[in-house]
Design a binder for these strands. Structure first.
Lengths: 206, 206
DNA sequence: GTCTATAAATCGATAGAC
DNA sequence: GTCTATCGATTTATAGAC
């Protein structure tokens, strides 16, 4: 019934944040650091202890906010997926010719779909799915959603531009996604690989 | 200077194998079992102990024949690469129309290039390359050789059939390889994915 | 909710006997 | 060359204090 109790009633702490906000902040900070480390060193080589320390917390904070390593990585991937999806939709939404769109898409592919770090994490994490039903279901779900979003985008653009595809939008989406993932995997090994082949191949497919 | 010594002089043991042959047999058996386990459970989830026991040896035998886990996995991948290369060259070497070739290639792609197990191992192992210079160099070398072999094949076939490509043979090879790896990675998660999109995309690219 | 301390298990790699 | 025994280093995950 003193100051502390009142702050709790108001759900505010000294720095003007509610407890929920404070925890959300902790969670976001952990995801940020985890994202850096997962992308830099890969899934297996990243330890929860180092993530927590680097974020300014201890391992206990990780387990207070995530069920475990797998769930933390899924949170990281969800964040990346959201950014990627938004970026590619933006690239194709604006005005301009189809050729402009290809250029924009190509630019995005450099740091997005063909990104060695991201695709490498994605496929390494897919290996975890073999002994973890949770990861298997979660990843399948996410990848289908991504393929579906790409297919929608392809449908919209082709209809607007009056282009006919050699394959259906869904199949084309799967092919593009495959190519991006594979190219990223190859680039994670061989950084000399040129990404422009990707944009060229895409023109050929449309 | 008795029976045993004579056998050693003849470099033969009781079962008619020289010591070199016997060791080669041990090595092959280890690679076979390692191949099964790496493909089934992935690189990280496979322990050298289980590989050795399953092969009828103990862990010491592994270290007598391989420098460590990485070298064992490279030996496995080299074996797979050799088989894959032979298979795809065979598919395109025989007589028949270009359409027959596509059918043969498509069939091979189902168990070969788009094979979920193999590509999953390949990309998971690529993650190891980030902290192992040995793996990084070895994998880069192998992948360049594979891309080069595919490019040669494309060159041969297109010249013979009088087809002109939209991209050069080398670029087309990289795209096909990327697509196969990515498709395999996706299929390792989502077994419902259809591989025929791969053959269709290939037609579009040629 | 976060921290400290610790449990618990795994696995790669090595040393020495045979 | 192979086996047995063990080291050593990690790391995930949990229990209890605050």
């Amino acid at each position: 019934m003193c100051g502390i109790a009142r702050r709790e009633e108001n759900e505010m702490t000294l720095d003007g944040l509610s407890r929920a906000e404070r925890q959300a902040q902790t969670r976001e900070r952990l995801i940020d650091v985890a994202r850096q480390q997962f992308l830099k060193h890969g899934y297996a080589a990243t330890s929860l202890d180092k993530v927590a320390i680097e974020a300014g917390f201890s391992k206990g904070a990780v387990y207070s906010n995530f069920a475990g390593k797998e769930e933390l990585c899924m949170a990281v991937l969800d964040e990346i997926h959201a950014e990627q999806t938004e970026a590619v939709v933006d690239a194709f939404s604006g005005p301009g010719s189809l050729e402009d769109k290809f250029k924009a898409f190509s630019t995005w592919a450099q740091t997005g779909l063909g990104n060695p770090r991201w695709t490498a994490l994605e496929v390494e994490f897919a290996a975890v799915a073999r002994h973890s039903p949770y990861v298997a279901n979660a990843l399948t779900e996410r990848h289908r959603a991504i393929a579906s979003a790409i297919a929608d985008l392809i449908r919209t653009v082709t209809e607007r531009e009056g282009v006919t595809l050699k394959q259906g939008p869904e199949d084309t989406a799967v092919v593009l996604l495959s190519m991006g993932i594979g190219l990223g995997a190859l680039r994670s090994l061989d950084s000399q690989l040129d990404v422009t082949v990707f944009a060229d191949a895409m023109r050929a497919l449309l």
